[in-house]
Simulated assay, not measured.
Amino acid sequence: MEKTLTYEDAYNELAQISREIETESVTVDVLAEKVKRASELITYCQAKLRATEKEVNKIIANMENGQK
């Protein structure tokens, strides 16, 4: 059974990859793989944030319309 990726999981994995690259603990052989994964995680996080922002704005708009 595959676990669904959460924003927090993606962010933590991205932070780990960043630390590995910054401390040069990633070998040249896996560097491209790590950068590719980081790119995927960034795209996922951006999409999740956009979707959350849209949903929050929708909720706020519904609350405002209900108060008028």
Rank of each mutant, 00 (worst) to 15 (best):
M1F: 09
K3Q: 02
L5Q: 01
L5C: 10
E8Y: 11
E8F: 11
D9I: 04
D9K: 13
A10T: 03
Y11S: 04
N12F: 03
E13Q: 11
L14R: 05
A15D: 01
A15Y: 04
Q16E: 11
Q16P: 00
S18L: 07
R19M: 14
I21M: 00
T23L: 13
T23R: 08
E24W: 02
S25F: 05
V26K: 10
T27E: 12
T27G: 10
D29N: 06
D29E: 15
L31E: 01
A32M: 04
K34P: 01
K34H: 11
K34V: 03
V35R: 13
V35H: 09
K36N: 08
R37A: 01
A38N: 01
A38F: 01
L41W: 08
I42P: 02
I42K: 09
I42H: 08
Y44H: 05
Y44Q: 04
C45I: 09
K48M: 13
K48I: 08
L49H: 05
R50D: 14
A51Q: 14
A51R: 10
E53Q: 13
K54A: 15
K54S: 12
K54L: 13
E55W: 05
V56W: 12
N57G: 07
K58C: 15
I59R: 15
I59K: 11
E64N: 07
E64R: 04
E64P: 01
E64H: 08
E64V: 14
G66P: 00
Q67V: 15
